[in-house]
């Protein structure tokens, strides 16, 4: 076991796959020589050569379009979009091509491809370095959508994503690249080396796609969260003094509904958290599924704490990012009902 940040864990996952599968190839903007603006691919080009890890022009549609052609040929491209906020030029290629290729060709052509992209706010990233566009991908049949919250999961999920036979959108919460973030921006930052999930095996392992993790067992209320919001939930539960069960979804599509339903049937209450804007966000899907599957077990209306329905601001960062106090208030409200 080694101590790794999420950045190092992601890099280790690509290192493992580049090493054990000659079909794996890594590319994107500044990914090659420089090693990525977040250092996620540092050293990989030097180790595997330019034919395996290389820089691309600033053209997201080309990055994904090239990857689709390579994947259809039988390779396993793992490409990077520098920020999730910049994925939109590639949206046509991802949603109309990658997601549908297997289905429309009746399995003649497939797309075993991973599109990595840093996501989420809490870093004063403003409008175009903070977005959480997961709902734009969970609405697309044929895609898988993954978002890790720990270094251990990040590596295991990324290896599983690279090995998956279908296209995977791999969202990396950049706020927790270097350490967990509990929502207190004024507080001391915690490094992954001080957290148990920073223990990461150096070799190959997978965390299966489509399975949630229970981060905290509890009896009174179920919290559904993913990415950075898992830690905000942990802090809020401590402050509220409620025996809540925190479920880290890890994979949004396909969703681990069985784990969610088992929990809500036990607790009878559920709060959904995400950074993304509220209207038609992924939380709406979660609430609809829970309502349908657990209606007779519910003891209170389902609530969600999300980003506001406004573009991500710069100066008002902490009025926008779902705060511990907002989550605490929601937990208290659901417990009152």
């Amino acid at each position: 076991m080694a101590r790794m940040t999420m950045i190092e864990a992601l890099r280790s996952a690509m290192d493992v796959k580049l090493s054990d599968d000659p079909g794996v190839i890594v590319f994107g903007e500044d990914v090659g020589y420089f090693g990525g603006v977040f250092r996620c691919t540092a050293g990989l080009q030097a180790k595997y050569g330019e034919e395996r890890v290389f820089d691309t022009p600033i053209n997201e549609s080309a990055i994904v379009g090239l990857a689709i052609g390579m994947a259809a040929h039988g390779m396993r491209p793992c490409v990077e979009i520098q920020f999730a906020d910049y994925v939109y030029p590639a949206y046509d290629q991802i949603t109309q091509e990658a997601a549908r290729l297997r289905h429309r060709s009746n399995q003649q052509f497939t797309c075993p491809m991973v599109v990595r992209m840093p996501t989420g706010g809490g870093i004063f990233g403003g409008q175009t370095h903070s977005q959480s566009p997961e709902a734009l991908f969970t609405h697309v049949a044929g895609l898988k959508v993954v978002i890790p919250s720990t270094p251990y999961d990040a590596k295991g999920l990324l290896i599983a994503a690279i090995e998956d036979p279908d296209p995977v959108i791999f969202l990396e919460p950049k706020r927790i690249y270097n350490g967990p973030f509990y929502g207190d921006h004024a507080g001391k930052s915690v490094p992954w080396s001080a957290h148990p999930a920073g223990e990461v095996p150096e070799d190959h392992y997978i965390v299966p796609l489509g399975r949630a993790a229970i981060r905290r067992e509890g009896a009174d209320l179920t919290i559904l969260a993913y990415g950075t919001m898992v830690y905000v939930a942990e802090r809020a539960v401590e402050q509220a003094g409620i025996d809540a069960e925190i479920i880290d979804l890890r994979t949004l599509l396909p969703l681990d509904l069985a784990t969610i339903v088992a929990s809500v049937e036990k607790t009878g209450r559920c709060v959904v958290l995400h950074e993304a804007t509220r209207t038609s966000g992924f939380g709406a899907e979660l609430i609809a599924e829970v309502q349908q599957a657990c209606f007779w077990h519910l003891r209170a209306p389902l609530l969600r704490v999300t980003g506001w329905d406004a573009p991500y601001p710069h100066a008002q960062e902490w009025d926008y990012f779902p705060s511990v106090s907002r989550v605490v208030a929601a937990l208290a409200k659901v417990m009152e009902d």
């Binding site: 549609s61 689709i68 052609g69 040929h73 046509d92 060709s105």
Partner: peptide, 28 residues
């Protein structure tokens, strides 16, 4: 779509296959 006859799956979205062909050629 006829893979064995060298015919990639046709999509309704114009232009998309043009860059995919370049990716396929890179894989070659």
């Amino acid at each position: 779509s006829a893979r064995d006859y060298g015919y990639f799956s046709v999509s309704g979205n114009l232009g998309t296959q043009y860059v995919q062909a370049v990716g396929w050629a890179m894989a070659c």
